[in-house]
Amino acid sequence: MADRHKEGSKSKYTLDRQMPGAFEGETVTRRRFMTGVTHGAGAVAAMAFTLPALGFAIGPLFSRLPWSWQPIGPPEDFTDTTYTTKVIQIVQGIGEAGNSIAYVRKRDPAIDTEPLDQYNHWVALSSRCMHLGCPVRFVAAAERFICPCHGGVYDFRGMVVGGPPVRPLDRFYTRYNTSTGLVELGPRYSVNSELQRFSPRDPGQPLDGIGQYLYPPRFDTASLTSR
């Protein structure tokens, strides 16, 4: 290739190659220019419909889930000895498919050792199993949460005591609304085995050890608004 542009046969300058209409310093032939323009126009045309369609399909990855505080009942509904089952709405507009269940009880300082703040006077556990997302059931006699799918078992505080789940049951922020006198339920958050709070993750993603680095938090984390 290197010696092609040497003396005689083919110079890179169109002027040297005696092309009609060639001008000083021109190296790109019209044929090459037209080929490039055609390929470029084809690429632009293909991207003009591919990129918007692709962005349209992956757009929901970057969306935030609108979340409002949901009233779940007066404080008298909840004791610190057992869980009360509350139906909550996770996604609006799709009927029952958008509902989920929260298990709620009053905080018991004797067993709930995590630091107290304004959002955990009531402990609200998500019913989705942290193995693969099946709904767990609270068995009052055993004081255990049991998952029907693959045998995950959690204790009274939602900590894993058996089976495949990788972290304790997710929780919801709770607060007391002084104007309505009702307990309200906020966004979901995930916890590691020390009950430290993390942004909500999907089931099956551990939050201890290397697990917390393998699964990046999502863009769409519902942020907790103050009032």
Binding site: I58, P60, L65, I90, V91, G98, D202, Q205, Y215, T221
Partner: peptide, 25 residues
Amino acid sequence: NINGTGPFLGPYLSDFLRAGPEFGA
């Protein structure tokens, strides 16, 4: 959620499949 357990890309894959963070409309 099984798709979501893939490291690094798993969470984005499950968000893509669900069209969002939760099973939605």
